[in-house]
Design a protein around this nucleic acid. Sequence first.
RNA 1: GCGGAGGUCGCCAAGCAUGGUCAAAGGCGUAAGACUGAGGCUCUUAUCCCGCAGGGGUUCGUGGGUUCAAAUCCCACCCUCCGCACCA
Length: 961
Amino acid sequence: MSQTTKQIEQKWQKCWEKARLFEADPDLNRQKKLVTFPFPYMNGPLHVGHAFTASRVDAYARFKRMQGFNVLWPWSWHWTGQPLLGASQRVARGDEAYIKVLRDVDGVPEEELKKFVDPFYMAQYYTSEGRSAVKSIGFSVDWRREFTTTMLAFQKFIEWQYANLKEKGYVTRGTHPVVWCPKDQSPTGDHDRQSGEGVTPEEYTLIKYRLDDGRVLPAATFRPETVYGITNMWINPDVTYVEADVNGEIWIISQQAAEKLKEQKHNVTVRCDFLGKELIGKSFTNPITNLTFPILPGWFVDPKTATGVVYSVPAHAPYDYLALRDLQKKPEVLAQFGVDPSMVLAIKPVSIIKVEGFGEYPAAEIVEKMGIADQNDSKADEATNELYKKEFHSGMLKANCGIYASRSVREAKDTLIADFKGLGAADSMYDLKEPVVCRCMTQCIVKILSDQWFLNYSDPQWKELAHQVVAQLTVYPDSAKPWFNTVIDWLREWACARTTGFGTPLPWGKGWIIETLSDSTIYMAFYTINAQITRNIIKPESLTSEVFDYIFLGKGDKTSAAKTADISTDLLDAMRSEFLYWYPFDLRNSAKELVPNHLSFCIFHHAALFPPQHWPKAIGVNGMLMVEGQGMHKSKGNFITLKSAVEKYGADATRCGLLLGAEGMDDPDWRADNINDLKFKFDSLMGFASNIIASAKKADDTPLERWLASRMQQRIKDVTFALDELKTRTALQTALFETWNDLKWYIQRKGSTEAKALGEVVKDWLKLLAPFAPFLCEELWSQTDEAGFISTAKWPIYDTGKVDVIALEQEALVTDVMADTNNILKAMKISPNRIVYYTAAHWKWQVYLKIVEKTLTGEVKINELMREFAADAELKPYMKDIAPLVPRIIKSLTKISGDRKANMAKIGVIDEKTILTDALAFLKDRFNAETAVYSESEAQRFDPKHRATMAMPYQPAIYVE
RNA sequence: GCGGAGGUCGCCAAGCAUGGUCAAAGGCGUAAGACUGAGGCUCUUAUCCCGCAGGGGUUCGUGGGUUCAAAUCCCACCCUCCGCACCA
């Protein structure tokens, strides 16, 4: 009884483990490759997305191992961070919806689920599930180097890293605005939000206009340059405002604003509240120009946005223009507030920005153009956006803008804000453009966190170093390389410590732990020594900074380091040399979503901490896995765990199904039908190859075997080239389908599988497939006469000596003839009884080859050619036939590649009659018709329609009936 | 908005750097045949349109341009997907 896929997989997994096949130790006689995959976060099971990215790493690792490299492919687990804790708390809270997902999607058994109230238990559970899934899919991992990020030894490593970064000045301290949940007392990231995804704090400038009594009206704006164009203030008469002591000044702001400012480093004490209408009609002073303006009622003013105090720039703000116009049309409204309508009527917009395509008053023009009725018209928003954008990008400040006159808005803005603040005329506050609601249903605000620790990715010198890392880095695909540079330029300070979740305590900051994206930037170096740490049971406290300095940087005195650490100098040296052997890493491959964060951080940190010889060698980036055309989400019900995929389809089909999906940065699509199909294909392949291995014993060396061997060489070349570029899809497609098709063709043509040469080709084929479908290949390899594992067999090397261009050309003749025959049959719409081929006469070959030669060397001149032919005694008699032939041949040759023409010239005349005669039985079978072949020059031939004279070299004439 | 990646013959997808070998690989799907008790699987063949003779026509997001020649080069436009920070 034949083994099931599952049995085969388990068998080889055990064999590999027993042979310690993937355990890699330093070996100075061999070149090394350290390949890595970003450790997965353990708040859930591994899924097919992980499998896709890691399959690429594994295929590469296996390929390089077969090429003779000493390959190290380690794996670990990310436990530090917030989500694990959050997940565990949801279980503890009895969150049924969440528990249902764990049960149904993750497949967690009931008795385990209960224990998930302990986050470490949860992590442990997913980690051991994950480990067995990784083994079951056949990743060739050295497990001796495994760790989790909460292990003390690892945390010592992170401490060392951060102490170093701080010493080098890459860690800074400062304040930072975040979206904040007042109830949870923590920042509310996108994933923690009920609504308001993607909303970030935006900074408003507050212009501190002053009432006559000295109280401040801090009007909020994104466009402080418009302070020069103010005509009045808007206060919502129906809204409650407060008078508050803010940093020693008396501010008038909306009630909501007072609460917000308290969280933003403002000292706020509310003294009293009142309705906005009390302010209407009062006048105030512009702190920049010292001019005085009135306060008018504006119902569009939203107390929930910023300060609830807005100043009016009717020349450039559509809302202001509309609101003013509305008031001017309704003097009776003004009268209610005791405002003199004629004063309002006298307000004229003040133009301060010159912008292309608009005249004096852009706001009025755009309102007109879009036909906006009043301040309640929904189109007003659109007009605002359009005009703001336009004025920002191409606006110039006019002469009435003080010292900023004739500067562009875009360029003057930042200095202007700084100047105003310096004068005490402006302040700032943050607010959210749209409401954000936390998962706990609380409305979020902006909080300014103080004494926050940052990695200073803004540091220009650090950026420069990071660019240098990128410059020497190979990126797969190459097109992703510029992306890294733009990300490096774009990254700013990154808060690298937080107060909640799991993580390594910040070495110098009480209560702070290192943020999880910041604790996973150089840990690939830790792999190099972790096997030693475990094997020698090195205590965490022995891993002092002196020890790490010595191991990773060769710094300091090893005797004293060993002494303080209580470990031997030999062991220290062993770790040092192991690090030196493996580092830097040769490949890190991940999905493209990590480019703007993890992978770029990895570059920054290597730049900061390691010398250039230990900088990353190559980074691979791939797309994000889709499932049936959609993004994979637990909530969408299309989440597929790695474990379930392997169980259902087998490891090889899962790996190959994923890898055939896409390469480069394209997103692969997991289609269950395709994977299932592949599973059947592999069953078929097993029988196919097995049969060949058993029967290929006969010494046979015909052009067909040479053709097959030649094709194989081309496949070897292509697969090797593609894998070196991490083009896993191209490589697999060639290795699996194209090569298989070659073999099938050979067997059809040959009619048997007995040739020993075929068996040899199959061995190479299995090797090409082994990085992708290791279990299947290992099984088939064991059926051959070869010893050892295919996983460590020698990768085939492309050998031009094995390429027989004549055999290739001869076989091409057969396929070309078949294609032509098919075309004729299709046009005739018949099934033939008899097919006769006529090969070209020798003199035609002479003519043909002469022309081929000419086209290779340069321009072909017909009259010269004809003269040459006429001079040839052998050709002279045929001149009448040659004349019309020559242009035809020239034309047909334009469709043939230079390489092939060169081959044709080299090969000379091929014996078409023999080739076709040999293929006759095959053709007969294929077309289900009597077949025959004659040479055009044979007098005795069956040729009722006189087709023979149409024969051309490489294009025999065909007669069908 | 900023940044990145893309739009190819029913679907997925190669090709585009180095224009001619491109009606354009491969896989899927579809159709026919073989196998089977029947099916699934597998294998074979076909699969833009026209053509009773190996030929012709129209295709590679849209519109222009360069060229003897463009899926490939240039310009403009339209559309889709992804990332944008304290979060893994």
